[in-house]
């Protein structure tokens, strides 16, 4: 049951997307997210969806994995859709007691949930094709210019690396503690909400304690290897932009340009 979490799980591969520089991918993801909020018309949403599918196709990922990445948030997506449908302003299409459905509501609801799905898909694509270590390298490199205004780029990247590194370890630990407590007759799946929350304590407390112990040990091990922060550290894998990254940047620029034209083009022409 604890193996279901796909967000942040790297799927090894050798595609165009896998080989891109992490900085390009991170920036492209941000630009795509911005593009999602530019989009208004149905056509622009269609273009965005097509773009995501083309990218996913290029990444050569199993479609099932991609769909699975939406799973953790489907409740929120459905909720968004529902709230927009029932609270939309405009001409009522259908009415039952206090519930009113409007055309505008449906359109807005679909748009909002599409936005959520697009955001989820693109961020999953980033994490599916980029290993966590490379990803944090990219983030560190992107944040380096902001060091002058006091952004602790290296420290942030190191924190992320450590956090990511320990996710599988903690999952394993949770699984083990759950087994140990169920061997002592603990029951995690019955009772009301409060009872269930209380039943989680025998898992959470040992988990916290072992996390602190691990943190302590890790800090000690890092100090023993003379870790003194980012100053003067060199790295084994230097990040270098290639021609591939140019191609990706062009693709992204074209997408944004098309979306901008679709949104403001009309007024531009009018002038």
């Amino acid at each position: 049951m604890l193996n279901d979490i796909t967000l942040g799980q790297y799927y090894p591969g050798n595609s165009f997307l896998h080989k891109l520089d992490p900085r390009t991918k991170i920036l492209a993801t941000f630009f795509f997210m911005a593009a999602v909020f530019i989009a208004e018309s149905a056509l622009s949403y269609g273009i965005l969806l097509a773009f995501v599918f083309i990218v996913a196709f290029m990444a050569k990922l199993p479609w099932k994995m991609l769909l699975k990445s939406i799973k953790p948030l489907w409740v929120i997506i459905i909720l968004t859709l529902g709230i927009h449908i029932f609270t939309g302003q405009g001409e009522p299409l259908w009415q039952w007691k206090m519930f009113t459905v409007t055309r505008e509501g449906i359109v807005l609801g679909v748009k909002m949930s599409l936005r959520l799905i697009l955001l989820l898909l693109i961020s999953s694509l980033l994490t599916f094709t980029t290993s966590p270590i490379v990803l944090t390298d990219g983030i560190e490199s992107l944040l380096t210019p902001f060091k002058k205004i006091g952004v602790p780029a290296h420290e942030l990247a190191m924190m992320m690396t450590i956090a990511l590194r320990f996710i599988p370890t903690l999952l394993e630990e949770t699984d083990r503690i759950m087994k140990a407590q169920s061997a002592r007759g603990a029951d995690f799946s019955s009772g009301n909400l409060i009872q269930r929350a209380k039943n989680m304590l025998p898992i959470l407390i040992p988990l916290f304690i072992s996390s602190f112990r691990r943190a302590d040990e890790l800090a000690m091990a890092m100090e023993a290897r003379c870790y003194r922060g980012g100053k003067g550290r060199t790295r084994m894998h230097q990040l270098v932009y290639g021609s591939r990254d140019g191609v990706a940047a062009c693709g992204m620029a074209v997408l944004i340009l098309v979306l901008c034209i679709l949104k403001w083009g009309g007024t531009l022409w009018a002038i």
Binding site: E173, R176, I177, K179, A180, A183, P206, I209
Partner: peptide
């Protein structure tokens, strides 16, 4: 289990 002291709570 192995290292059962890790399950104390």
């Amino acid at each position: 289990f192995q290292y059962p002291e890790h399950q104390l709570f």
